[in-house]
Design a protein around this nucleic acid. Structure first.
Lengths: 248, 248
DNA sequence: CGTATCCTTGATTCGCTTCAACATTAGTGG
DNA sequence: CCACTAATGTTGAAGCGAATCAAGGATACG
């Protein structure tokens, strides 16, 4: 480490215009001419160690966060202790949108590995949206994408069986790794079986069994958290016709 | 009916500033001085008959819609024919936010009864957001609220049992009816058992059985779609401690 | 190198689905 | 207005998929 935590957190000046995540992140699709103006947007970067919270449910909402490095999970808690992972987030994705509605975060964001985020003060975002052409629209798109994504998860939770859910999950991860320039067929999951299960509405044993079954069937190769997709077409087929031919 | 359909659809001039739904809808919380400017926002009203689509998945996105009267459901379809209801919407709620992300709607919006919506052209909303103080923030809140709501449904689908889901659904409906000035304890559901089931990730038989069980236990009185909540505290308790005391 | 965490696998139980029959309501046309 | 029909809702019995309970094994971490 080259500097103390205090300095690292607040000191680094950041620049969207020079960030290699521009293709994935909030500025996506904005003309270069406008890009430099976005550099004002990011107040600071913040490092979050593995297992640490970026924010917690109940925290006052002040900023949204763009993941610069690493990955996160978000989860919601019920009074009785049950909790549910609502999403896994990767580089370039935006965290904290849930907080706008009540000025208070409604879920927890936890780093799955040592990570770094760009802090985007919401007030500054609102202000700059008035000045920079296209920023507002881009932000709306990000929020809308989140809504669409959530609908997909609802679909998954509401009408898919265990193995279909896991297949959909793996294909989704693969696609997101691909978009980040990593291999589509081989990747490392940062979350535990229990977290995957929580996200998919399954128990960890069920996730583990499904992994084993996929391996037996030659669809994937599993070695703990390291996954190799051997037959993506097979996985895709698995999702599509659960009750094929039933006509129901 | 006082006019032909064609005239009714396109002719009526609308005014947020005079709408009694202002407390629930997009303009909520905006000062009166700004309210009149929102009147520009609504291009026209559109009537949608029961069972008709307001929009379909795949339609080009052009506008969002505020429900002026009636109610809707939104659902997504999988290629293999399976579908899932992702939400039920009431007066004052906004439809169509899913379309911003790809310029194409990703779900279907269907009227559960003869309904009417205010058409808010998205381009006009973006433009006016630059001019009218607070509108942008208000719109962000609406989108954020949708995200938080979706997380709640994910929680429900991922970690609640059948009766808990239905109890949560009934309490949610009650709360929303209350917010609209209707009775909290007695209301008429506009959707079928199958639609409720789809929303809750259950089969219609399971929904029906849960209704019957609630009635046996004196929690509610059911007469087809007419529901009376007799013991809301009991319903609430049902949600909270499913596996209470298990310590797991 | 020891310990906590995470993962796998088996046996059993339980809740929801499926299949089926029937009841009720709503909608339609004679 | 009533008869007919389709849509919707209820209830029962049987089957199945995932949860639960339980034990052992692999891996990461200090």
């Amino acid at each position: 480490m080259r500097a103390s935590v205090a300095i690292t957190v607040s000191g680094l000046k950041t620049a969207c215009s020079q960030c290699n995540l521009v293709e994935l992140c909030l500025p996506f699709g904005m003309p270069d001419s406008e890009l430099s103006r976005l550099d004002e947007l990011v107040g600071a970067r913040r490092k979050v160690k593995r297992q640490q919270n970026l924010y917690r449910a109940g925290d006052t909402f002040e900023a949204i966060y763009a993941i610069r490095a690493g990955s996160f999970k978000t989860d919601v808690l019920l009074e009785d202790g049950r909790d549910q992972v609502t999403g896994f987030q990767m580089t370039g994705e935006i965290l904290g949108l849930d907080g706008i509605s009540t000025e208070t975060h409604s879920c927890n964001a936890v780093a799955l590995e040592d990570s770094e985020v760009c802090v985007i003060p919401y007030a500054k975002l609102e202000q700059l949206s008035h000045e920079v052409e296209g920023l507002q629209h881009q932000f709306h798109k990000v929020m809308s994408r989140e809504i669409v994504r959530d609908h997909g998860v609802m679909m998954l939770l509401g009408s898919m069986r265990a193995e279909e859910r896991l297949a959909a999950f793996l294909l989704n991860m693969s696609q997101r790794f691909t978009a980040r320039g990593f291999s589509a067929a081989e990747f490392h999951l940062r979350m535990t079986r229990e977290e995957i299960g929580s996200y998919l509405g399954l128990k960890l044993e069920t996730v583990s069994r499904a992994f084993s079954r996929f391996q037996e069937e030659g669809l994937i190769a599993v070695q703990q958290k390291h996954i190799r997709l051997l037959d993506t077409a097979g996985l895709r087929k698995l999702i599509q016709h659960q009750t094929a031919g039933s006509g129901r």
